[in-house]
Amino acid sequence: MADTKDELAGVVDLFGGLARDELEQALVELAFKQGDEVEREAVAVEIERAVEDYYLAEAEYAGDDAPGGGSEAPDSILVAGPAAFPTVPENGEDLPHILDVPDRELDREELGETVADRLYEEARTVAAAGDAERARELLDVSYDLEAWAPVEADDVRERLDRAFE
Results as ranks from 00 to 15, higher is better:
V115L: 08
E39S: 13
S71V: 03
L56D: 02
V79L: 15
A116I: 00
V151A: 05
F15T: 01
A73K: 13
G69Q: 11
L139D: 06
L160D: 06
G81Q: 04
L139E: 12
D75P: 07
Q34P: 03
L18S: 03
A19L: 02
E37M: 06
L138F: 07
V45D: 15
T114C: 07
L23F: 11
E29S: 13
E113V: 10
R108A: 13
D154R: 09
E37P: 01
D65K: 04
E158P: 02
E93A: 11
I77N: 11
E58A: 14
V11T: 05
E121S: 15
V43K: 08
S71N: 10
D3Q: 06
T125P: 01
P150E: 03
D6C: 01
E158W: 10
A129E: 14
E113A: 11
P86Y: 04
E39Y: 14
L95Q: 09
R108E: 14
L145Q: 11
F15Q: 02
H97M: 06
K5Q: 14
G35C: 08
Y55Q: 01
L99G: 04
R118F: 01
E93F: 06
W148T: 00
I77M: 08
A66G: 03
I98L: 11
A84T: 00
P102V: 05
A26N: 07
A147G: 14
V28H: 05
V141W: 01
E165P: 01
K33I: 14
E93D: 15
A149S: 11
L139K: 05
A26G: 13
G112I: 06
G112T: 08
E152V: 14
N91D: 15
D6L: 00
W148L: 01
